[in-house]
Nucleic acid binder design. Structure first.
Lengths: 213, 213
DNA sequence: CCTACCGATCGGTAGG
DNA sequence: CCTACCGATCGGTAGG
């Protein structure tokens, strides 16, 4: 692995764990095994390094998302939710970085959200509204507000999942994360769909499975 | 207002906004209008000041919570949820401080949660289980995991509520926070109670209101 | 509550 | 990728 990638990896972990202000360039350089001055040859400033770390995380997500939206399967919501959970639980540092950035630089993050999140949020909200017309989605749900809460539930929840897990079993079993994510998906689904909608969704999935055998 | 209280107020706001590492003692002292050395007369170290800020926030919450649990009204859950939302939306810095502490010092926060949160979480989880037996609460809900998600939904959601709100309406209307909290309470309730449970709850509330007139 | 000062560490530069 | 070094700022102390 080349030095640049090593620096990005270490910096991602450190920024996620201790934040921008709590991480020094020397600490990153030490862990990589080079001098601070050498790090500043690859990234001209601490700010540039931080930007690169964020860009890397967000671009990975921008690769995954359009593929999910384009899939267009019958139970699109199910797949979208599950893949989002998988993406952030695969590496919780992604979630921690986004959460930290939202706390540290709310103004910058607001602009980024407006550009990167708002458009496809409107698209999914459109699906939700169509679901309300057909009776599959609860009539009293607020599509945009609901989606924002679910995104936050996933991103924020996985950012602090190990801390939440400890309350379930003080010895810290790894099964706690599973228990938390299963309940998270239950909350997200049951607060969106009507009983009729859930039945229809299960019916479609059973049909799809039967057809593929 | 005495100097000590002024220092605590300014420090609370700064720690919530920029975190521990991103806040300097000089910056706090400047805003209060004293010298850094004078600040260190009232609080012997930055760490002590930080501890005092956290203690102040958590002790306020420990005043409110037992009163809510002791109330023992029929729709206890409704009141508990609503008051928790009110407490943190009254001053979102409380939520930001707790969220930051969870990210910065997960080990310390885990111990604190085990001591301060786990006991009464078990109590409320007991209520939820009784609700499952009587059919008011959904049978497939995981009481402890559910409660942790709702706590996170409230605390984390209010910590970043202004950032989430901007996606709803780019000009940033204050009504967005209302829209978000209303949807938050809807998600929390509908994912916990069965339709029968909600009907019973509304019935009880109507009866209570009629009785009080 | 102040002035004056401390060593340590910060991000960053010069020059090789 | 290194050594050597910069000014600025950090948390904290001495002494009044």
């Amino acid at each position: 692995m080349d030095v640049r990638t090593q620096i990005l990896d270490v910096a991602t972990r450190r920024f996620a764990a201790q934040g921008y202000g709590g991480t020094s360039l020397s600490a990153i350089a030490d862990e990589v095994g080079i001098r601070k001055a050498s790090l500043l040859y690859h990234f001209p400033s601490k700010d540039e390094l931080h930007r690169s770390v964020l860009d890397q995380v967000l671009s990975r997500w921008n690769e995954v998302l359009p593929r999910l939206l384009a899939a267009g399967s019958a139970d699109r919501f199910d797949a979208l939710l599950h893949e989002t959970v998988r993406f952030f639980s695969e590496d919780p540092d992604r979630a921690r970085l986004i959460l930290r950035e939202t706390l540290d630089n709310p103004v910058t993050m607001r602009e980024r959200l407006l550009v990167a999140v708002a458009p496809w949020l409107q698209v999914i909200a459109g699906y939700v509204r169509r679901g309300q017309e057909s009776g599959e989605v609860r009539a009293d749900a607020d599509p945009e507000a609901y989606l924002l809460h679910v995104i936050h539930l996933v991103v924020g929840g996985l950012a602090i999942s190990d801390t939440l897990g400890i309350v379930l079993s003080p010895d810290g079993a790894s099964s706690d994360i599973q228990r938390l994510t299963r309940e998270l998906e239950r909350i997200a689904k049951v607060s969106l769909f009507t009983d009729e909608g859930i039945e229809r969704m299960n019916g479609r999935r059973a049909a799809a499975h039967a057809g593929s055998h």
